[in-house]
Nucleic acid binder design. Structure first.
Lengths: 211, 211
DNA sequence: TTGCCGTCCGACCGATCGGTCGTCTAAGGT
DNA sequence: ACCTTAGACGACCGATCGGTCGGACGGCAA
């Protein structure tokens, strides 16, 4: 039950990177919070960027695992998309720092570009594959008539903004709508996004595949 | 036409803070890019936090000015909300670093909390007032029957995510949907969000105020 | 017992951080 | 002609940054 040092480091680093960002977190701070000396970190991760990469990879893997069953090919695109969104929301809700970490990572395309931090390439590819699968579900749905003729990339941008941002909004979001990670707030977010998908993207009064 | 040193500093700092975040930007970097020595910055802004505050304030003021006419009390809430969103998108599109700066600021609720950086209080209050006005439009619309019974705070979270995030998504967004700030991309974003409001939130086949 | 190995540590490195200080210069008012 | 003032500058400060290094400790296999 007691976590290994490596896991402890990852847990602490995930929370700190989410709160203060890559440049804002010192390795000393992480080491202290993990109950280790700073130099001990380097026995588990060769560089700060590698530590960040490991943290990010763990988060993306969790999300991928939870969303995978919903996205398996061959099903009703409407149900696939809805189930995928619910799975994503559940995963973000169980790992509070995750949402903010993901959005911060998107914003750090300078310092954390895969060119400079090759340890992030694997994570990026996995995320790309996941997004491609979602895009596929949307384009399939449009092709079958289940969805209006929406643009998959734009729909995905909207989806990320509407799903991930609220769980990353911290004090701002709490002042606006109360506790972010309460069961009620999570349920409200699901309703909000599912309604968006249903009324905004699904074709009304259509039973879908016209074949 | 040639900008004053102060304006030059603000322009450079806005771009840098948006790209690398508060902790990730050194004052030396800002000074160099502005064509000044580092110590000259302190003749215009007493601390780094004050500089960030001035940058943020300028961004929020621009947004507020552009959205104000759309939000003046007494009008059709549907038109008010749509016009406000269009105004916001236009403003973000004209000032590319703005969206990312705003979201980053939301995420920095630790280091940049108004308690520690009192120069941000004014900006925060102005932003709160702006959001309150939007919330008012939504609740009015719900009361008059123009909107479904949606929750204003949740709707605002969705709106921020769907409007602001895409313009802050940088390389990630460009890989997904091409140039973010092209005229076509801006038009697509407007269509996307306006459709969301219309189909997702407006009551169908209703002419609104039943009085 | 011996030797190895994974883990951890304190001391240290050069670089950079935000910020201070004293000085110099150019413009403007009297 | 004089003095004030704003703006800019280089030198410098203590603190912290990511990262290195040599060694100490404990478990385990031979």
């Amino acid at each position: 039950m007691l976590p290994t040092s490596r896991e402890k480091i990852l847990d602490v680093a995930e929370a700190r990177f989410a709160q203060r960002g890559y440049a804002g977190v010192g390795l000393r701070e992480v080491a202290d919070a993990a109950g280790l000396g700073k130099s001990s970190l380097f026995h588990h991760f060769p560089t700060k960027a590698a530590l960040y990469g490991a943290v990010l990879d763990r988060v993306i893997e969790r999300i991928e695992q939870r969303m995978r069953p919903a996205l398996e090919p061959g099903g009703d695109p409407r149900e696939q998309l809805s189930a995928a969104v619910v799975a994503l929301i559940d995963t973000l809700a169980e790992d509070p720092p995750a949402a903010r970490l993901l959005l911060r990572t998107v914003f750090e395309d300078d310092d954390l570009s895969p060119t400079e931090a090759p340890e992030l390439m694997a994570s990026e590819q996995r995320l790309d594959a996941l997004i491609a699968r979602i895009a596929r579900v949307i384009t399939d749905g449009v092709a079958s008539g289940a969805f209006r003729p929406i643009s998959a990339p734009d729909a995905i941008q909207t989806l990320i903004g509407a799903v991930v941002f609220p769980f990353a909004s911290g004090e701002f979001g709490e002042k606006l709508a109360g506790e972010i990670f309460s069961a009620e707030a999570i349920a409200r977010r699901k309703r909000e996004v599912l309604a968006l998908i249903q009324f905004g993207w699904m074709r009304p009064h259509s039973q879908g595949d016209p074949s």
